[in-house]
Nucleic acid binder design. Structure first.
Lengths: 353, 353
DNA sequence: CTGAAAGCGCTTACAG
DNA sequence: CTGAAAGCGCTTACAG
């Protein structure tokens, strides 16, 4: 039989059972190992399977019958590449895969754009981790809730009944801001993460803040306000170096209005602000201090050692994965809020004058 | 009805059909949009679905019935984190997700360790991309072949009948080696990628090379031999900076035997060799020249600009994804071999003496 | 320890 | 345009 022909007529459990001279039920038991089957019978079944090139029970049929697919979905708020370019997300992903080990489940990457045949609305997943504070969260959550799929949100309030794994965004930012104040800064500006579903770039305004759909962004803004009540700034269109650079240029170009310190809401954005400062001939930290958030090593940023708030990204992922395992076991786990640690690098210093 | 109760009795297509007063077939047609259904009927079905909180056809039943799961597997040769730490793999992954867009399929992350309930042996995937030149390839391929699942291998010969997406490992390395020879180097050593399934660290010996299970490693060694016939060196236990550092220390510690140039088989390994040189008080490239492979930006390596062979990682992934799409459409695509581009950075120079 | 039966939820020819 | 029927491949009570 050629490969092509074989592909058109793969053997089924029934075929194997027939050849082994047992019932399908018995053959099934032999494969699952979950029932009492005599050694002789088991071996007859396996021999038949081998003879027929049977690769084992079809997972599609198993999951229909069992009501479980053995797959955990991870909803990214953007295309796969973008998520993979963010070190924080990678660490969370790895943490999740660690957390769900007891499930032996695979990780299915999903985006919340709703494109493609396989989406949040119909992916064959048993549970889902929502990564990142996506503005589109509400819609995603509604679909998942309708489907009765357990979910946990990492960063972001997805609904009162949905477990949240978060960090101390407000307090951590407050501590970073206090560090700047202690250095003597008073003219400080923010470079925030996206605020709305369109990820609109631009100045931070009370209107836009009021309409924020990103809890993380809002919380970190609030933390900065605790120290610098009137602080303003700009919103980036994503968390990456280029967006940080654009924001930095907008903030630092005019010597008249230039802040002496910038609070960026991610390390990638902070790195971009540093790039912008360099382009404008400004020294960091002599002319501008830059504070980040995340505590990831940013590619090519050396010899700068970013002053930042280090958050436990992998631990967050692991906690999320563990929570899903518990929910699938019928338990009702609590959410977790982790603490970030202030790291003093070499990108902050007292203001020049 | 409480959420918990709802979770125990999710409505089915049959329920929706009954409420809409139509047959299940018609309701199915209404949802799939693939059959002739009158507007009035369709709306009645949707109204019933809404009233019952029906989230749409169960993907598990659909995939059993249709024989397709809408999921493409990506087999990583190591744990998720390790793959995500390798920029080359991330670029390939992103390329794959781009290549399978026409399928609208999700990407399921799998490792070839065989652990967990969902593995290569039973994952509900329609097709699979094998990433990286894993030594465990043979076993993975055998399982997939038995299951009749179309696959494509990125880097690595998986079998005569399996499409390969590769690059010019031998020729690219040859060009890099020639660059070193032209600079005047003659005492050159290799730091290779793993050679065997155990990823054994240690000196390169004819025996070990003969038993290599990694085509990529062997091809790159062969390319170096075209220029430096007797070249030896050490094998790293993985492609990361720390392994490169260990290899570099082994190679550079003894001033008597120290090479004037090192050919590393990945940029990450090259970065590690540079770190080792620094630790030993050697200057790069003044005391030791270092050549990499991949053309990725290595975190924290600035101001070094690695001399390397730049390979088109994302394009490889895309080609792999596209090949799978074609195979699923019943076509028989060819493999592709891409070319790498030599990049002259600042880590190679004529030997000191 | 083994088998007959029912059914997981859907889609797809096939009739009408 | 709509419906009745069969079946995708398996697992799970239930009997024996």
């Amino acid at each position: 039989m050629t490969d092509a022909a074989a592909a058109h007529a793969r053997p089924t459990l029934a075929d194997v059972a027939a050849r082994a001279g047992v019932s399908a039920s018995t053959a099934s038991l032999a494969f699952s190992g979950s029932g009492p089957v005599s050694d002789a019978t088991r071996e007859r079944v396996f021999a038949a399977a081998k003879a027929l090139d049977y690769a084992g029970p079809d997972p599609r049929a198993q999951s229909l019958r069992r009501g479980r697919s053995g797959i955990v979905g991870v909803v990214l708020e953007e295309r796969v590449r973008a998520a993979f370019l963010d070190p924080v997300k990678i660490q969370m992903l790895d943490g999740i895969s660690e957390g769900i080990v007891p499930l032996g489940a695979g990780l299915l990457l999903l985006t919340d754009t709703g494109e493609g045949a396989v989406s949040v609305a119909n992916a064959p997943v048993d549970a889902v981790a929502l990564i990142g504070c996506s503005p589109r969260l509400a819609h995603t959550v509604a679909q998942l809730r309708l489907r009765g799929i357990p979910m946990v949100a990492i960063e972001g309030h997805a609904g009162d009944d949905i477990i949240e794994i978060s960090i101390d965004n407000e307090d951590a930012t407050r501590r970073g801001a206090e560090h700047l104040r202690e250095l003597g800064h008073s003219r400080v500006a923010l470079v925030t993460l996206p605020l709305d579903p369109e990820r609109t770039r631009g100045p931070l305004t009370p209107e836009r803040e009021a309409e924020s759909t990103s809890a993380t962004t809002s919380e970190r803004i609030a933390g900065a306000r605790l120290v610098f009540p009137g602080i303003g700034g700009v919103t980036a269109g994503a968390s990456d170096v280029e967006e940080g650079r654009l924001a930095g240029l907008a903030l630092l170009a005019d010597p008249e209005t230039r802040p002496t310190a910038v609070i960026a809401q991610s390390d990638l954005l902070a790195a971009g602000v540093i790039r912008a400062a360099e382009e404008l001939g400004l020294a960091v930290p002599a002319d501008v201090s830059v504070l980040g958030f995340d505590g990831v090593r940013v590619d090519g940023l050396a010899p700068y050692d970013l002053t930042t708030l280090v958050q436990p990204s992998a631990a967050k992922g692991r906690a999320a994965g563990e929570a899903l395992v518990q929910m699938l076991a019928g338990e009702h786990p609590e959410g977790t809020c982790f603490s970030s640690v202030f790291h003093r690098g070499n990108t902050t210093a007292p203001p020049a004058r």
